[in-house]
C-alpha cells in the first residue's frame, strides 16, 4: 500500500534515518522505521496513541538507545548522543515540555544557548531578541518563573528555548497537546513561519488535520511501523487516514452487521 519512495526530490537531505528500531525489554516500540527530512521542509509523523511517535523522536535525538542509522546533516550516527546532536543543530521540543519550572523565563531561554555559549558563540543577545519578537508574550513574562505560565505560554517557551540553540532541524512532539484551539492555531502559524526563517521541522502530531495542512510531506506511524507516507496534501484526502482516526469506514459498518 506504500506510496512511491523518494517522492520529494527537491532540496538536499537534512535528516535521513534508516531502519531505526527501539525495544523496551522484549516489546519493540519502533521497528525498522525509515524517513527523510529535506532542507527547509516541514515533515509530519501522524499516528494513533502508542504508535511510537515519541519513541521515534527520542531515538533520533539520542535520548533513547536504538538500532539502525541516523544520518543528520551528512554525518552518520549509529548511536546518536544528545550532546553531539544538539551541537550539530538538532533540537527537540518534547511532549512534556521539560521546562526548568523553578527558573525564570529569561533563564530558560538563556540555557537554550548553553552549547553555543560554550563553543564561544556569544551572540545569544540577538537570538534572544528574535525569540522575543516571535513570542511577545515571553518578553512580557521574562522575569516570571516558568511554573507560573499557562499551557500555551509553556509551549511557546519550550519552542523558544529550543530556538536559542539556532537549530537547523527542530523536532516538535505534539505541540498542540492540551492546548485550546486558538492557541493551537497560533502554534501552527509559528511553525509555518519558522520554515520561512530556514528551520526545517519534523512534527509529530495527533491533530492530524492541522499537521497535514502545514506539512510538505507526511508519514503515518502505526504500532511502531511506518504504515504509509506521501505528500501531505495527498494523505489528507486519503480515506484510509481518516479511517485510522475515526473508524468511520465501510469496513466497520460491515463488521457491525455481521
Amino acid at each position: 500500500m506504500n506510496m512511491p519512495m523518494e517522492p520529494c526530490n527537491a532540496g538536499t537531505t537534512l535528516l535521513q534515518i534508516d531502519n531505526l528500531s527501539v525495544a523496551y525489554g522484549k516489546v519493540e516500540a519502533l521497528s525498522n522505521a525509515s524517513l527523510r527530512v529535506g532542507e527547509g521542509q516541514i515533515v509530519t509523523v501522524i499516528g494513533p496513541n502508542g504508535a511510537g511517535k515519541t519513541t521515534l523522536l527520542s531515538a533520533i535525538m539520542g535520548v533513547l538507545g536504538s538500532r539502525g542509522q541516523v544520518n543528520f546533516d551528512g554525518t552518520l550516527q549509529s548511536v546518536p548522543e544528545v550532546e553531539v546532536m544538539v551541537g550539530r543543530g538538532l533540537g527537540l521540543v518534547p511532549e512534556k515540555r521539560e521546562l526548568f519550572t523553578s527558573m525564570s523565563v529569561a533563564d530558560n531561554l538563556l540555557l537554550g544557548a548553553f552549547q553555543r555559549h560554550r563553543r564561544g558563540e556569544r551572540d545569544h543577545g540577538q537570538t534572544l531578541k528574535q525569540v522575543y519578537d516571535l513570542f511577545p508574550r515571553l518578553w512580557e513574562r521574562r522575569e516570571q518563573l516558568a511554573a507560573t505560565l499557562s499551557g500555551g505560554e509553556r509551549q511557546m517557551l519550550a519552542v523558544g528555548r529550543a530556538l536559542m540553540a539556532k537549530p537547523r532541524l527542530l523536532m516538535l512532539d505534539e505541540p498542540s497537546l492540551g492546548l485550546a484551539p486558538l492557541v493551537t492555531r497560533e502554534i501552527f502559524r509559528i511553525i509555518s513561519s519558522l520554515r520561512e526563517q530556514g528551520v526545517s521541522i519534523l512534527l509529530v502530531e495527533q491533530n492530524a488535520r492541522a499537521a497535514l495542512r502545514v506539512a510538505d510531506y507526511a508519514y503515518v506511524l502505526e504500532t511502531g511501523q511506518i504504515a504509509m507516507h506521501g505528500p501531505a496534501r495527498q494523505l489528507a484526502d486519503d480515506p484510509r487516514v481518516i479511517e485510522a482516526y475515526l473508524g468511520l469506514s465501510s469496513k466497520h459498518q460491515e463488521m457491525l452487521a455481521s
Binding site: 491533530n207 492530524a208 475515526l246
Partner: peptide, 17 residues
C-alpha cells in the same frame, strides 16, 4: 456520536485555521 461535528473537530483537529 460518530456523526457529531464537534467530535469530528476534536479528533481531526481545527477544521478551519
Amino acid at each position: 456520536v460518530q456523526n457529531n461535528p464537534a467530535v469530528l473537530e476534536a479528533y481531526l483537529g481545527g477544521a478551519d485555521a
